[in-house]
Design a protein around this nucleic acid. Sequence first.
DNA 1: GAGTGGTCTAGACCACGGT
DNA 2: CCGTGGTCTAGACCACTCC
Lengths: 243, 243
Amino acid sequence: MPKKLYSDIYDTLKQEINKQVYQPRNTLPGEEELASRFDVTRNTVRRALKELQSDGLVYAVKGRGVVVLEPIRDDRVVFQADNTEGFEALRNFPQNKFIQRLSTDVLTFEEVEVDEELEKLTSFNTGDVAYFVERLRLFDGKALAVDNSYFRKSLLGDMTREDAEKSIYEYIRDNGLFKIAAERSTTTVESATKRDLQVLDVGDMNCVGALTKFVYTDTGRLFEHTQTRYVPNHFSMVDFKSF
Amino acid sequence: MPKKLYSDIYDTLKQEINKQVYQPRNTLPGEEELASRFDVTRNTVRRALKELQSDGLVYAVKGRGVVVLEPIRDDRVVFQADNTEGFEALRNFPQNKFIQRLSTDVLTFEEVEVDEELEKLTSFNTGDVAYFVERLRLFDGKALAVDNSYFRKSLLGDMTREDAEKSIYEYIRDNGLFKIAAERSTTTVESATKRDLQVLDVGDMNCVGALTKFVYTDTGRLFEHTQTRYVPNHFSMVDFKSF
DNA sequence: GAGTGGTCTAGACCACGGT
DNA sequence: CCGTGGTCTAGACCACTCC
């Protein structure tokens, strides 16, 4: 007795595509046919198909059908940092083979008041109090990334360095503070700063990747601003778009 | 007499959010209310709201309502290369102030046969014939990026260097070959290669950003593999996710 | 308990692709 | 022409948040 029909259909179809029951470049059965197979309406089937499409597995063409896309090879990716909760999320990701080898050092933990310059960076308001947390991300003991985060104190209450050393998102959940709703992020490549060279194992590289992330609570409040700076050659971000 | 109701509603609400008719952190009117205002069903309103949500403007919370998210500042972005048709698309983007200052040089244009190594890179099949095109992207005469592209010849027919010098996507449209359906991309930071140093104005930087892109036709065929390698500090990619 | 968004049904008509 | 996906209606029930 499943709760979400469309997500069951999604799972089933996804498996069948992976098992090549439906082969690349062929079309799936029509929506009407799928509807009667799963004993739901067309709308519900469409919902499942839309998910498959946003995963990049299929593509719907009016008048022709839903086409299965050819798969691509994907060996060289070290791991996909797909802009979620950051490194904590990677650790909980079941497919991730690297979990054991990841660790975190909190280098800095302090309260700061938002001035004009910081307002420009974080989009918080001048006068707000924020926690500044600098966390070093280690992989096999090598410093591969550093997170510079600002969190609005008014939303977090009194947090300690120890909380930050575990997981801030865990702290939020455990204290039932709010839910994370959404995030906006931008990716750039930048010159390494003095601080980067100090704390990161960049080797002889003189630039870093930067992932700047704004995180919202479910009441629409900007809650976190984090810039992750990471050394080259170890990370990759994936994305899919259909037109 | 609009053709797509939901997209009209989307436009209207988007404007009203920008004009602060609905203020950040407040909720929009309920779906029922919006439905009667626009004289459509709730489903159609929901469709528009979903678009707004994937734009990162609002976020829906069950039991509470649709919350308007706080806007963020976004000055420092040079331009958004959001994985579209590449540089040609940027040129056609109306908001882009940099159009005049962009130009392209085709450095290499040749046919190659796909061997095992190239199959690994492109996911094309061994034995396929592909066009290899190396295009230098200039901004104010500075070489800021280079595209290394492979196109399946079987899908393109006989293309000339001149076609590549204009726009390959224009060539496809003009000849009515097929439609572009979707693309998958990954972003990484990599060490600069000898070739990068040769053709790009990297200055004293020794690494580059790399955007690797797989493009599909609407029949589900992998058609293009492009790796864009760009110098640091000039580009940014934006993204939005909701949970 | 009242009001919100989330899921689903059972229809309908249209635009488009292929024959 | 027929079959496909795209849009839309008019209902229904549920889960959740807030008072």
